[in-house]
């Protein structure tokens, strides 16, 4: 079933279209930057963007910084919201279940498919970001990269830090994916599930910025979403990255559990 889900994911034009669009925005940004050479001042605009003008190798990180706040979560929420509700709305859910595919197995396959999609999207953005960065913004002949702390990184250093960043950003989407997947088992409308997931995302984003929520905000799903920027400091302060990964794990456990409990016991009337 997992293989079937992956084949479905890869055969679907929408998968590639959404990933293509995700990659497009950073390319557009890079074109503007390379033409005008006007970078946002440090502290303004998307994360890390100020640092990339002289150094294209840092652009994968900047590219992910560009898509992270909106585009990537939208894509992930749509994909996860589709998972069960989409099958329900085409009527295929009943045929899969009587095929028979166990409900738990179906849910697990859907989860794997979402994870693969997320990873695919993040890696695609990083790769396209690297290619664009190096070709458009140039490597300026340097072999080393300057961190936010002002120290220098060797290319190998930068490579593993970028790798960890890809994983960390991918993982930060998983909590949102679990919430959307749970909603997807509640409704037969893929759109409703995706919008529900996005509503959770927006609420969390708003609440995180308020001082009044200080008691709970460390547990909100988007609290540590930008912690990966720490990977470009020296030495790396791991605390936020660890905390972020743990919180995502918590959301995954709770909402996957709820999704499973609901899906395994509900009537399928679609």
């Amino acid at each position: 079933m997992i293989r079937v889900e992956l084949r479905k994911l890869l055969l679907r034009p929408r998968t590639w279209l959404s990933i293509g669009l995700l990659c497009l925005l950073p390319v557009v940004v890079a074109i503007f930057l390379s033409v005008t050479k006007i970078a946002p001042r440090p502290g303004q605009g998307p994360t890390l963007l100020a640092a990339v003008l002289g150094n294209g190798a840092l652009y994968p990180a900047a590219a992910l910084g560009i898509v992270l706040p909106f585009f990537l979560p939208i894509a992930v929420a749509v994909q996860a919201g589709e998972a069960v509700a989409g099958e329900a709305s085409t009527g295929m859910l009943r045929y899969l279940l009587v095929r028979p595919v166990g409900r738990t197995r179906l849910l697990a396959a859907k989860l794997v498919s979402i994870l693969v999609y997320t990873l695919l999207a993040v890696v695609a953005v990083a790769v396209v970001g690297y290619v664009t960065g190096v070709t458009l913004l140039g490597n300026s002949g340097q072999l080393t990269t300057t961190t936010l702390a002002g120290t220098t990184l060797t290319p190998a250093d930068l490579a593993w830090r970028t790798g960890v960043m890809v994983l960390s950003i991918g993982w930060s989407m998983v909590g949102l994916a679990a919430i959307s997947l749970f909603l997807s088992t509640l409704t037969d409308s893929a759109l409703a599930a995706a919008l529900g997931g996005l509503a959770a995302l927006v609420s969390s984003t708003v609440l995180v910025t308020l001082d009044a929520t200080v008691a709970v905000r460390d547990y909100l799903p988007t609290r540590y979403w930008l912690a990966w920027v720490d990977l470009f400091r020296d030495p790396i302060p791991w605390h936020d990255l660890r905390a972020g990964a743990l919180i995502q794990a918590g959301y995954v456990v709770v909402f996957l559990g709820a999704a499973w409990a609901n899906f395994a016991t509900r009537d399928v009337t679609s």
């Binding site: 479905k8 055969l11 679907r12 085409t90 009527g91 295929m92 009943r94 045929y95 009587v98």
Partner: peptide
């Protein structure tokens, strides 16, 4: 269910395939 073939409330298929 492996011994059962079913058509329930109309057919369904993935439209793009």
């Amino acid at each position: 269910l492996p011994g059962v073939g079913a058509l329930v409330e109309g057919p369904a298929a993935y439209p793009h395939l």
